[in-house]
């Protein structure tokens, strides 16, 4: 089974302070650590596990700049067979439609049985790229996948619903799945492992090679336009309790006692 995993490099903002750039169009990137989008990492791991079980090949692709090749190389070290980079310069990257156009054009040029990507990306969290790509390709998809089982040209997956509920869905191949975190435990790739794949060529594709014009994927062709960024509104603020840990603990216990 040949699998394509679409990945993206994003800043890790879980524990970091995110500072707006003065032009309000972006964020200060200097103090942020960048890496493969968490959801995509689970997708890559899942693809490699499927390959190890079912045979076939795993390819990874990103739309990015040369700086983004490190995540591709990391995927190669994890066990992906091929990595491709679609040069992002003509793309309007804030628009998931542009990205999906690029990915679907790429997928059309190859033949994959299965395409995977993360449910969403940790930066913009649209959760659109997967279903949009599937729609453009006309292949079935499902989102929020928490397990995959391959059987005779079909795959059965479970997808995560709300309230601790899951549903099982069967899809015909080729199909596209968006992968939820926690589906597996992604493996660690060592630097030596990455070095071993350092000479592996990563083909760089230009949009025109994929039959995409700058008008389609550039800002003028964007469906979704990112207008501005701002700090979240102050809104309702919690009443802050300050003091030494001891004093705070006492106060908390007092509050708790009053209620429970």
């Amino acid at each position: 089974m040949d699998i394509l995993v679409c990945i993206k490099k994003v800043p890790d903002t879980a524990d970091a302070e995110v500072i707006l750039r003065s032009d309000g169009k972006g964020i200060e990137e200097e103090d942020l650590a960048f890496g493969i989008n968490e959801w995509d990492n689970y997708a890559v791991e899942e693809a490699i596990r499927l390959k190890e079980k079912e045979g076939g090949k795993v390819a990874v692709v990103t739309i990015g700049t040369g700086d983004d090749e490190d995540i591709l190389r990391r995927c190669l070290a994890m066990g992906a067979d091929d990595a491709y980079r679609i040069d992002s310069s003509p793309f309007y990257m804030d628009d998931p439609y542009s990205v999906a156009k690029g990915l679907s054009a790429f997928a059309k040029k190859h033949s994959f049985d299965l395409i995977m990507t993360g449910v969403m990306a940790g930066d913009m969290s649209y959760a659109m790229t997967g279903p949009l790509t599937a729609g453009m390709l006309g292949i079935p998809h499902t989102t929020l996948v928490t397990s995959i089982d391959v059987k005779d040209g079909n795959i059965s997956v479970t997808r995560e619903l709300e309230g601790g509920l899951e549903e099982s869905v069967r899809l015909e191949l080729p199909a596209l799945l968006t992968i939820q975190t926690g589906i597996n435990e992604p493996r660690y790739v060592s630097i030596m492992g990455i070095r071993k794949v350092r000479s592996k060529e990563i083909p760089v594709l230009r949009a025109e090679e994929l039959g995409l014009s700058a008008e389609e994927i550039g800002e003028q062709g964007a469906v979704l336009e990112l207008e501005s960024l701002e700090r979240p509104p102050e809104g309702k603020e919690a009443e802050m309790i300050s003091g030494s840990p001891d004093e705070i603990a006492e106060k908390i216990l007092e509050i708790v006692k009053g209620v429970v």
Binding site: D15, E17, I19, D31, Y188, S190, M192
Partner: peptide, 29 residues
Amino acid sequence: ESGGEVPVNVQEMLESVYKFKNPWQGSKG
């Protein structure tokens, strides 16, 4: 190197050092 059994916490520590340059997942800022 072989991707064998490595405790998950050790893997995460290494991921953190790789990504954040510290083992505690602290941001550079």
